[in-house]
């Protein structure tokens, strides 16, 4: 009778082994679809695995795979949703840290600046991640960078030796950027000067021309005692072009800065070799 029971236990083990094997095979299948960039199908198969994985032993890997697939499809909300599930299923601190950073990377990409700031603060206070402070600092730098705060990005990245290249790029941007208030200030003093400062020469010269002409006509009208004409030209035309000159100086500086920011982000996305969101 004893041998019967031994056989029974053996069969139970075989049974469990088979089940394990099937789930493992399913995970490999889902991962192979991911590698082939068939993200939608990869999610289907990962969900199938999750459904039959009664003990949730694959929960972390499955949810991470689903989240990564959604990220590749640009579906950030869903990706964060599944990374959060993976975070809950994390088996150790290393997995937990990795998942939290993935969530932060997605939030940086979708420009949720304050949320990332808050999440990094929370991680900084967590004793389990005490050894990873430079990594947190690094992602904080990226967060500032996406938030268009290059000064803070330089300051933050400057604290990490390994981020010297990224810091230098941010410093370059800081130097290249135009001062919006300076551009506007120039145009207050000399119409068109702010536009010329931002490289919009034609617009600057045209603006100067209109302001000189209309200013002349206004002064001439007043000096010829044609006060009504002077008022009309001064308020309806000269003031309009003078205000246009100020708003253009500001608009051009903002647009140029936007261009510099986008060019840098584009460069970082395509050429930067280090870790990135």
């Amino acid at each position: 009778m004893k041998s019967f029971w031994l056989l029974f236990i053996f069969l139970i083990s075989v049974e469990t082994g088979f089940a394990q094997l099937q789930l493992e095979k399913q995970l490999t299948f889902a991962e192979s679809l991911f590698v082939q960039e068939k993200y939608f199908d990869a999610i289907t198969e990962a969900k199938r695995l999750s459904f039959f994985d009664i003990t949730s032993q694959y929960s972390f890997r499955v949810n991470s795979l689903i989240a990564e697939s959604y990220r590749q499809g640009g579906k950030f909300s869903e990706a964060v949703h599944y990374f959060t599930k993976a975070e809950i299923a994390a088996n150790n601190v290393k997995e937990l840290f990795k998942t939290k950073i993935e969530i932060i990377k997605i939030n940086i990409l979708r420009r949720a600046f304050y949320l990332v700031d808050h999440q990094l603060d929370d991680m900084g206070k967590d004793a389990r991640f005490a050894a990873d402070s430079s990594s947190l600092q690094y992602w904080r730098g990226w967060n500032y960078l996406f938030h268009d705060d290059w000064e803070k990005a330089v300051e933050t990245l400057g604290k990490i030796d390994s981020a010297a290249t990224l810091k230098n790029i941010c410093e370059e941007v800081q130097k290249k950027k135009y001062s919006v208030s300076f551009a506007k200030g120039l145009s207050v003093v000399l119409p068109g000067a702010g536009q010329i400062y931002t490289g919009n020469y034609v617009s600057g010269v045209l603006s100067l021309g209109w302001n000189v002409l209309l200013g002349y006509l206004t002064v001439q009208a007043f000096s010829a005692d044609r006060a009504f004409d002077g008022m009309a030209i001064g308020t309806l035309l000269w003031l309009r072009f003078y205000n246009g000159n100020l708003s253009n100086a500001e608009k051009f500086a903002v647009e140029k800065n936007e261009l510099i920011k986008n060019e840098t982000l584009d460069y970082l996305q395509k050429n930067y070799q280090g870790l990135k969101p």
């Binding site: 939608f40 999610i43 590749q72 869903e78 936007e258 986008n262 982000l265 969101p277």
Partner: peptide
């Protein structure tokens, strides 16, 4: 989130820059 998958989708190129 369910509605996201009511249509098949492919890989999307993610852009760091804003337009």
């Amino acid at each position: 989130f369910a509605q996201t998958d009511w249509q098949r989708w492919q890989r999307t190129e993610i852009n760091y820059s804003e337009t």
